[in-house]
């Protein structure tokens, strides 16, 4: 008896060791590109071009980050991305909440058709509308401005869909009770419906934040100067830099990813909820 118990324990230990080994191995593979990017950001250009490659910075050059921030106009790019992203998220959440509320709590002709129209936008890829949208923005004289980066994204089919799903779960009796108390629609929406559904709203806001922050094709097409370029396009500018400055490119890459990395650590739960909202519901 004690012998088999000991062997069982040994097997269990061995299993655990193997599991950790696999976990660590997988983590190393996932992290390796990020690790090398950080290391290379801290090396001198000479060390980067040196073969065999340096895999650990013995004399980290922290001021490369300062260089990337200043010389690569990364500070401006990050500011621009922040402005555009916050505006897009605020507008998307607002328009989606309003529309979803109307679709759930208000009766008006063509309601179903209009909701279907909102859903149909999910089928239209941004690329199919790229050229006319570019012409529209150009016609409005808005090219190379913040509004040009924001306007096409003020509404979201996914947002309306998610919020409608969430609001549908709201007990109708509560609505009736509120109405009896003389609570108008807008008051009801902002005092009761929105606060109750704040987790869904937060999840969607994070999802919207990620997509807005990571926009690439549209900002590439409508921005022409650094004063409005977002960080994704800024990275493109940076990557075309002189080859004696590869360390600056690496540092810029890290800086561009940092805001989202922090967000991920702070709001991991909501982010997971946001990313999986569509999937789990579907």
């Amino acid at each position: 008896m004690p012998a088999t118990e000991a062997s069982a324990r040994r097997t269990r230990h061995l299993r655990l060791v193997v599991r950790y080994a696999v976990l660590i191995g997988a983590a190393a593979i996932v992290l390796f590109p990020i690790y090398i990017t950080i290391v290379d950001a801290l090396l001198t250009p000479q060390q980067i071009t040196h073969r065999p490659p340096t895999l650990f910075p013995t004399d980290p050059q922290w001021n490369t980050f300062v260089t990337a921030f200043r010389q690569g106009s990364l500070g401006i790019y990050l500011r621009n991305s922040a402005i555009v992203t916050f505006a897009v998220v605020a507008l998307e959440v607002t328009t989606s909440v309003l529309a979803a509320y109307a679709f759930v709590f208000l009766k008006f002709p063509a309601r179903k058709i209009l909701f279907f129209a909102c859903l149909a936008t999910l089928m239209v890829p941004g690329e199919a509308t790229l050229i006319p949208n570019y012409q529209t923005i150009n016609g409005l004289g808005l090219l190379n401005t913040f509004p040009s980066l924001i306007l096409p994204f003020v509404a979201s089919g996914i947002g309306i869909f998610l919020f409608r799903q969430a609001f549908l779960g709201f007990p109708p009796e509560l609505r009736d009770a509120a109405q009896l108390d003389g609570c108008g629609h807008l008051k009801f929406l902002f005092r009761i419906v929105a606060p109750i559904n704040r987790s869904v709203i937060a999840a969607f806001a994070l999802f919207a934040f990620l997509s807005a922050w990571n926009q690439y094709l549209w900002p590439l097409v409508v921005t022409q100067t650094d004063s409005v370029r977002t960080v994704q396009i800024g990275l493109r500018q940076l990557s075309g830099a002189n080859f004696s400055q590869f360390n600056v490119v690496f540092a810029g890459t890290i800086l561009a990813a940092l805001p989202i990395a922090i967000l991920l650590l702070l709001f991991q739960r909501q982010l997971v909820a946001g990313l999986t909202a569509g999937a789990v519901k579907g």
Binding site: V30, N214, L235, R236, S239, T253, A256, L271
Partner: peptide
């Protein structure tokens, strides 16, 4: 394992 969510297409590509 979820860390690459922090990278955008541009970040990953430039790296």
């Amino acid at each position: 394992y979820s860390s690459t969510v922090a990278t955008s297409t541009a970040v990953a590509s430039v790296a």
